[in-house]
Amino acid sequence: MGGIGIWQLVIIAVIVVLLFGTKKLRNLGGDLGSAVKGFKSAIGDDKEQKSNVEKTSAEKTSESLADNSSTVTEETSKSTSKTKETDQA
Rank of each mutant, 00 (worst) to 15 (best):
L9A: 03
L18H: 04
K82C: 04
V16A: 01
K50V: 03
D87G: 08
T80A: 12
T73L: 07
G21P: 00
A13I: 09
I6R: 13
E85W: 01
S77Q: 08
T76A: 13
V10T: 13
I43C: 02
D45E: 10
A13H: 04
T86W: 04
S64L: 11
D45F: 01
K50A: 12
A58E: 15
T80R: 05
T80S: 12
V14T: 12
S69D: 13
L65F: 07
K47P: 00
K82I: 09
I6N: 04
G5A: 05
L65S: 06
N68E: 13
S41P: 00
T22M: 01
Q88V: 09
E54M: 06
V53Y: 11
S34E: 09
A35K: 07
A66E: 09
T71C: 02
K47L: 06
T22C: 02
E74H: 06
W7C: 04
T61K: 05
Q8L: 04
D67T: 09
S34L: 11
S57A: 15
D67I: 11
E59K: 07
N68M: 11
T71F: 03
W7E: 15
W7N: 15
G21A: 00
D45V: 01
E59A: 07
E48S: 07
Q8T: 14
V72T: 11
L19V: 14
T83L: 15
E85L: 08
V17I: 13
N68P: 00
G38E: 02
V16K: 01
I6G: 01
K55T: 14
L65W: 03
A35V: 06
G29D: 05
K40S: 03
N27L: 06
V16N: 02
S77M: 10
S51A: 13
G30A: 10
I11H: 05
I15D: 01
V72A: 08
V16E: 01
K40V: 05
V72S: 04
G3T: 15
Q8S: 12
S62K: 11
V10D: 05
K82A: 13
A89L: 14
E85Q: 13
S57C: 04
I43S: 01
D67G: 02
E48G: 02
Q88M: 10
